[in-house]
């Protein structure tokens, strides 16, 4: 079983990528792993390239930056352009509402933003993506993410985020019948 995962969440400021990385990291902690979460962003709070990185491992994580990503989430064309040419071993997930569709065995487009709007909150696209990626890569368990969302948020916000997570999970089950990548 694969123990170390390196995940890059890339897009623009305001898309909730850093929060997404924190939730993923907390889920990995719940599964007893070491984590390092870093980020890179510009001086604007909205817009501009933003990136969040998560490394999870049973072993000590020495260098803090990702060198060989296993999983990439791209939420803007700029982010996609940076990673689209990565090798076939890198699973790249992108938002097909915001980005043009691209062919490629390792390129997985899902309408995260459209589904988020259907849920009634455009800001849940990042959580829907987490649900999709968790099921397809197995990097963290869906239950671990649920437990993090329940402790990080409360009331209606928790409900909305958990609903968003399961929107991603069910989407994958519908399309792939649950077969992992």
């Amino acid at each position: 079983m694969k123990e170390r995962y390196e995940i890059i969440l890339a897009g623009a400021g305001g898309q909730g990528l850093i929060l997404c990385g924190m939730i993923l990291a907390e889920a990995a902690i719940a599964e007893g792993k070491n984590v390092v979460q870093t980020q890179s962003y510009g001086i604007a709070t909205r817009g501009g390239f933003s990136k969040s990185e998560v490394i999870m491992d049973r072993e000590e994580i020495i260098f803090q930056q990702i060198q060989r990503p296993d999983v990439v989430l791209a939420l803007t064309e700029q982010a996609m352009a940076m990673f689209a040419s990565a090798g076939p071993e890198v699973q790249i997930f992108y938002d097909s509402t915001l980005l043009g569709t691209r062919p490629g065995q390792n390129l997985h487009g899902y309408p995260f933003s459209a589904l988020a709007s259907e849920l009634g909150h455009g800001g849940t696209a990042n959580i829907i993506a987490l649900g999709v990626m968790a099921v397809l890569t197995g990097m963290v368990k869906v239950e671990s993410l649920v437990s993090v969302l329940s402790s990080r948020f409360s009331g209606k916000t928790a409900d909305l985020n958990i609903k968003a997570l399961y929107t991603g999970v069910k989407l994958v089950e519908k399309i792939t019948k649950g077969d992992p990548l």
């Binding site: 924190m22 990291a25 902690i29 792993k33 070491n34 984590v35 390092v36 979460q37 870093t38 980020q39 994580i61 803090q64």
Partner: peptide, 9 residues
């Protein structure tokens, strides 16, 4: 900035 903004368990 790296260590200030980094998160770890």
């Amino acid at each position: 900035e790296i260590v200030g903004h980094m998160r770890e368990n």
